[in-house]
Design a protein around this nucleic acid. Structure first.
Length: 876
RNA sequence: GGGAGUUUAGCUCAGCUGGUUCAGAGCAUCUGCCUUACAAGCAGAGGGCCGGGGGUUCGAAUCCCUCAACUCCCACCA
C-alpha cells in the first residue's frame, strides 16, 4: 500500500543518484542533435544558496530538462566564481580570528589560505543545487580561478593591452576603505543619508568667506575657494587669499562658473584629492592635490591635525574644534546621497590613484547594436531601455583591484619603471630584451604589478572560457555549444556581467554569447522587502526543501513569477506546490488501486471521456509550448497545473472511475485502464521539468521500465489532433453538471440522492452520447427526452431545456423568478447585439468575422429566449 | 534633477495589433460536505465603473492627451 501523502524525502536522493549514475546530464557535442546550452551564472565559490539562486536555477533547470526531453543535446554548465572581494574579506576575517594579520603574510601564504578556504567551502553551493534537482553536467564544472580559466583572463588582458584598449592612468576612483581596494562605479550604491551641512568661515586679510560643506574633516586638503565669476557678493575677493581654519594655510579664491550661486553661500571649498568635481576643477585651475586620507580611511600626517583618526570621528571632532576657534558659523540638517560599497557597505571615498582601465566605447559597439536590434533578446524587453542608456553612456572600466585573491595583472616593471605587459615573466623579459635592448636584464629585475583584476574581468569570458575557447580555440565544444541559447540571471547584474559578456563574445568569437537573456525578479518577502540577513526575512532554501520537498519548492517559486517582476515570497506558495505534488501522488494511488478486468467491455462513457481528454491534452500542450516559447514560465506551469488538477483529476478520473457496488469497487476494463496509464504517462512527461523527482517516481511505477530508462530522457509531449467538436460538447456537459450540482446545493439535496432529468432538445444525438457521463457525474437516475416541459426545476443551455425532477420539492415562485432573471438578461443582451447589427457604420467598418460572430450570438440568444419563455409559460 | 516603467477582484498577476460570451487566472474569502485517491481534499458562491479626468471611434481595460500615486534606473549641487 502506498502512502496516503507524498513523501519526497524517500525518493529524491535515490533518483538524483540514479540520474547522475546514468550520466543523463552529461553532454557531448553530437552533430545529429541540435544543441541546447545554458551556462550558469556562477555563484560565489564560498557562497550558500539563497532564495534568488533557487528561483533562477529552477528556471534554468526547467528550460534544460525540457530541451533534453525534446531531443536536444542539452548542456547546462555549472561552476563557481572566485569573487575577489567577498572571498578575500572572508579569509581576512577568518585569519583575524586566528590572530593572524594579512599584512604579516606574504602574498603566496595568503593565497594558500584562500585556496584552502575555497576548497573547504567551494563545493557547498553546487551540492545544494543538486538537492534542488538541478540537471547540470557536473563533469563540466568550472571555476574562474582554475588554471585554464586563469590563463584565459591573462591572455585577454595582454591582447586588449596590445590592441591599446587597456591603459594605466591616474583617475579619481571609488575607494572602499574597508576592503582597501577600488571598486567600479557599478559597485557603488548610492544611499540617502541625513548629514550636517556645516558652514565654516575662512578668514583672510582682505575679507572672509563662509563655505558650506558636509565634509569638514577635509578642509585641511583644500586647495582653493571657488566662487561664481558672476557673483557680485564676492567680486572683490577673487584672487585674494584666505586661511584655512585651524591650520592657517593660505589658499586663493578663484572663480569658475561651475559654482552655483544660490546653493549654500555661493562659496565652494575645492578639495581636489577628495572629490570628483573638485579634482576636475583643480586640474583646470592648476591646483595642488593634497591627499589627507590613508587607505583605511583615517587621516594621515598631511592633515596636520587629527592624524590617525577615522574620517567620521575626525568629522565630529573638527566641528567641535571649529566651534571653539570661532570659525563655525552654523550647522544645519541636510540630506544628501553618499556612495557605499556594494560588497562591504563602507562609505566610498573618492581617491586619486593609478589604476588600470579598459576603454569601453569602441569595444561595446556591437553589444549595444545587437541588443537593440533584437539579435539578442532581453526578456522582458523593457530592460532594453536601461541597457541602451547605460551602453551609450558607458565609461571606461576600472579593472584593477588592490587585492591578492584573483587574477594578477600581467604587467611587469623594469627597474626604471617601464611597464611591460606579457602573459608571464619570461615573455616580459623577452620583450624587455628585444624591444629595449636590455640584454643584461634578468627575471629578478622585473617586478610584477601587485594588483589583481576585477572579478567581472574573468566572468565576462565565462560562456567562452568554460569551453576552453582561449586555450584551445578550435575545439569541438566551443564550435558546438557556442553561442549558447539562454541566459537566466538577475537584472541587477545586467551591466556588471551580461553586457560585458556580450562585449567579450563579439570581441573574441565575433558572435553573441547567448540568444536570450531571461531576467528574473528579485525575491522579496510578503511585505515587499528585499530578503536580507539583517532583516532575517530570508528562509533557508535547504530547510524548505527538507520540509516540503524540492519539487514543491520549485513549483511554489514559479507559480507567480513573470520575467522581470519581483517575486513576493510567501511560504503559502510552497504549500501550494506541495499540495499539487500530493494531488498527483493521490491520482496515481487511485489508478494504482484499481482492479483491472480483461473481459469487461469498455463503456461508451469511458471511450468518450478518453477521446475528450486526449483532445484537451493536445490543446493544453500546444498552449504550454506557446508559453514556453515566450518564456512565460508561470503561465506554462499554470497550464499544466490546471490540466492535471481540474481536467484530469476532477473531471476525467471521475468520468472513468469504476462504480461502487455494495461498498466494493467494480473492476475497470483493460482498455480504459491502459489508456489512462498512457495519459498519465504523458502528463508526467509534461510536468517533469517542473517536478523532476515526483514525476520520475511515478513514471517508473506506471509500468516496468528498462534498466537505463528515465523520464529525464523520455520524449516531451508533442501536439496531436484536437477535436474541437468534442471539446465544445464537453463544455456543455460540464455546464449541465455544475448546474445540477448547484441546484442540489441550493435545495440542500444530498449528492447521494439520484434525481431524474428531462431534456427537451432538437439535438438528441448530442445528449445520447453524453448521457452516461451526465448520469454519472451529476448523479442522475434516468434521462428522459421530452417534447414538453415536465414538473421540476428548469434551466436552459444552448437553447435546450433541462428539467430536474425534485419530487415536488420546488417553489414555483422562486423558479419563476430565476427563469425570469435569466430571461431578462438574455433579452437585454439580444437587444444590444441587435442594435449593433442595426448600426450601419458597424456593419460597414467591422471585419466580416466579427459580424458573423455577432450574428451567431444573436441566434443563440434567440434560441435561449424561446426556451426560457416556454419554460416560464409552463409554470403559469 | 533627468529617463523608463507600473497603476485590472483582498493578494500576485494575464489580457498581443481596439469588437461586450474579455472583464480573466491562481491564491485568499464565504457556503455546504470526513462522498471508500487526496480535508495538503470535494462541490459550489460572492467579489472589479480595468488609478482620476478628457479625447479619438459605430465601439476602448486595450489608442491619444492630461493629472495623481508607486517603482526602478541614471545623475557629484558642495
Amino acid at each position: 500500500m502506498i502512502s496516503k501523502t507524498y513523501n519526497p524525502k524517500e525518493i529524491e536522493d535515490k533518483w538524483y543518484q540514479y540520474w547522475t549514475d546514468n550520466k543523463y546530464f552529461s553532454s557531448k557535442p553530437n552533430p545529429d542533435k541540435e544543441p541546447y546550452c545554458i551556462v550558469i551564472p556562477p555563484p560565489n565559490v564560498t557562497g550558500v544558496l539563497h532564495m534568488g539562486h533557487m528561483l533562477n536555477n529552477t528556471i534554468q533547470d526547467v528550460l534544460t530538462r525540457k530541451a533534453r526531453m525534446e531531443g536536444k543535446e542539452a548542456c547546462w554548465v555549472p561552476g563557481t566564481d572566485h569573487a575577489s572581494i567577498a572571498t578575500e574579506a572572508k579569509v581576512v576575517a577568518m585569519l583575524k580570528e586566528k590572530g593572524i594579520n594579512k599584512k604579516e603574510l606574504s602574498r603566496e601564504e595568503f593565497i594558500k589560505y584562500c585556496w584552502e578556504w575555497t576548497e573547504k567551502y567551494g563545493g557547498i553551493i553546487l551540492n545544494q543545487l543538486r538537492k534542488l534537482g538541478a540537471s547540470c553536467d557536473w563533469d563540466r564544472t568550472r571555476f574562474t580561478m582554475e588554471p585554464n580559466l586563469y590563463d584565459a583572463v591573462i591572455e585577454v588582458f595582454v591582447d586588449l593591452y596590445n590592441k591599446e584598449k587597456i591603459y594605466r592612468g591616474y583617475r579619481m576612483v571609488n575607494w572602499d576603505p574597508q576592503a582597501k581596494t577600488t571598486v567600479s562605479d557599478e559597485e557603488v550604491i548610492m544611499k540617502d543619508i541625513q548629514q550636517k551641512l556645516v558652514y565654516i568661515r575662512y578668514d583672510g586679510d582682505e575679507g572672509s568667506v563662509t563655505i558650506a560643506t558636509v565634509r569638514p574633516e577635509t578642509i585641511m586638503a583644500d586647495a582653493a575657494i571657488c566662487v561664481n565669476p558672476a557673483d557680485e557678493r564676492y567680486q572683490h575677493l577673487i584672487g585674494k587669499k584666505v586661511r584655512i581654519p585651524l591650520i592657517n594655510r593660505e589658499i586663493s579664491i578663484i572663480a569658475d562658473e561651475y559654482v552655483t550661486m544660490d546653493f549654500g553661500t555661493g562659496c565652494l571649498k575645492v578639495t581636489p584629492a577628495h572629490d570628483q568635481n573638485d579634482y576636475a576643477l583643480g586640474e583646470k585651475h592648476g591646483l595642488t592635490i593634497i591627499d589627507i586620507l590613508a587607505d583605511d580611511g583615517t587621516l594621515n600626517e598631511k592633515a596636520q591635525i587629527l592624524v590617525g583618526e577615522d574620517r567620521f570621528v575626525a568629522r565630529k571632532k573638527i566641528i567641535k574644534m571649529l566651534e571653539e576657534s570661532g570659525n563655525l558659523v552654523k550647522a544645519e540638517d541636510y540630506k544628501s546621497t553618499v556612495g557605499t560599497s556594494e560588497r562591504t557597505g563602507a562609505v566610498i571615498e573618492p581617491k586619486l590613484s593609478l589604476q588600470w582601465f579598459l576603454k569601453m566605447k569602441e569595444i561595446s559597439e556591437p553589444a549595444l547594436q545587437n541588443v537593440m536590434n533584437d539579435t539578442i533578446q532581453l526578456i522582458p524587453p523593457k530592460f532594453k531601455n536601461t541597457y541602451n542608456y547605460w551602453m551609450e553612456n558607458v565609461r571606461d572600466w576600472c579593472i584593477s583591484r588592490q587585492l591578492w585573491w584573483g587574477h594578477r595583472i600581467p604587467a611587469y616593471y623594469l627597474p626604471d619603471g617601464t611597464c611591460i605587459v606579457a602573459i608571464n615573466k619570461q615573455e616580459a623579459l623577452k620583450i624587455a630584451r628585444n624591444k629595449y635592448q636590455l640584454f643584461a636584464l634578468s627575471e629578478q629585475d622585473l617586478t610584477q604589478d601587485e594588483d589583481v583584476l576585477d572579478t567581472w574581468f574573468s566572468s565576462w569570458l565565462w560562456p567562452m572560457s568554460v569551453f576552453d575557447a582561449f586555450k584551445n580555440p578550435d575545439n569541438e565544444d566551443i564550435k558546438y555549444y557556442y553561442p549558447t541559447n539562454d541566459l537566466v540571471t538577475a537584472p541587477e547584474i545586467l551591466f556588471f556581467w551580461v553586457a560585458r559578456m556580450i562585449i567579450a563574445g563579439y570581441e573574441y568569437q565575433g558572435k553573441y554569447p547567448f540568444k536570450n537573456v531571461y531576467l528574473t525578479g528579485i525575491v522579496r518577502d510578503k511585505q515587499g522587502r528585499k530578503m536580507s540577513k539583517s532583516l532575517g526575512n530570508s528562509p533557508d532554501p535547504l530547510e524548505l526543501i527538507e520540509k516540503y520537498g524540492a519539487d514543491s519548492v520549485r513549483t511554489g517559486m514559479l507559480f507567480s513569477s513573470p520575467a522581470g517582476n519581483d517575486l513576493l515570497y510567501d511560504e503559502k506558495l510552497i504549500e501550494q506546490g506541495r499540495n499539487f505534488n500530493n494531488k498527483i501522488w493521490n491520482a496515481f494511488r487511485l489508478i494504482e488501486g484499481w482492479e483491472v478486468s480483461a473481459t469487461e467491455n469498455q463503456s461508451q462513457s469511458s471511450a468518450k471521456a478518453i477521446e475528450w481528454f486526449k483532445s484537451k491534452l493536445n490543446k493544453v500542450v500546444a498552449e504550454t509550448l506557446e508559453h514556453y516559447s515566450k518564456f512565460r514560465m508561470s503561465d506554462a506551469l499554470m497550464s499544466t497545473y490546471n490540466l492535471i488538477w481540474d481536467d484530469f483529476c476532477s473531471q476525467y478520473l471521475e468520468m472513468i472511475k469504476p462504480a461502487y457496488v455494495d461498498g466494493n469497487s467494480l473492476p475497470i476494463d483493460k482498455y480504459t485502464f491502459d489508456a489512462t496509464l498512457e495519459i498519465f504517462d504523458t502528463l508526467m512527461r509534461l510536468a517533469h521539468p517542473w517536478m523532476p523527482f515526483l514525476t520520475e517516481e511515478i513514471w517508473q511505477n506506471i509500468k516496468t521500465r528498462g534498466a537505463n530508462e528515465s523520464i529525464c530522457i523520455a520524449e516531451f509531449p508533442k501536439v496531436g489532433h484536437v477535436n474541437e467538436e468534442i471539446l465544445s460538447d464537453f463544455e456543455i456537459l460540464s455546464e449541465i453538471i455544475s448546474t445540477v450540482r448547484n441546484t442540489r446545493n441550493a435545495k440542500q439535496i444530498s449528492p447521494k440522492e439520484a434525481l431524474p432529468l428531462a431534456i427537451k432538445t432538437s439535438n438528441k444525438a448530442r445528449y445520447e452520447g453524453l448521457a452516461g457521463l451526465i448520469s454519472k457525474l451529476a448523479n442522475i437516475s434516468g434521462i428522459q427526452y421530452v417534447q414538453d416541459k415536465t414538473e421540476g426545476v428548469s434551466f436552459v443551455i444552448k437553447g435546450d431545456e433541462f428539467t430536474l425532477d425534485l419530487g415536488g420539492n420546488i417553489d414555483i415562485e422562486t423558479e419563476k423568478a430565476n427563469l425570469q432573471k435569466d430571461l431578462d438578461y438574455t433579452l437585454g443582451f439580444k437587444k444590444s447585439v441587435e442594435s449593433k447589427l442595426a448600426n450601419e457604420r458597424f456593419v460597414q467598418n467591422a471585419k466580416p468575422d466579427i459580424i458573423e460572430k455577432e450574428r451567431q450570438k444573436l441566434a443563440d440568444a434567440e434560441a435561449k429566449i424561446k426556451a426560457l419563455e416556454e419554460a416560464l409559460a409552463k409554470l403559469g
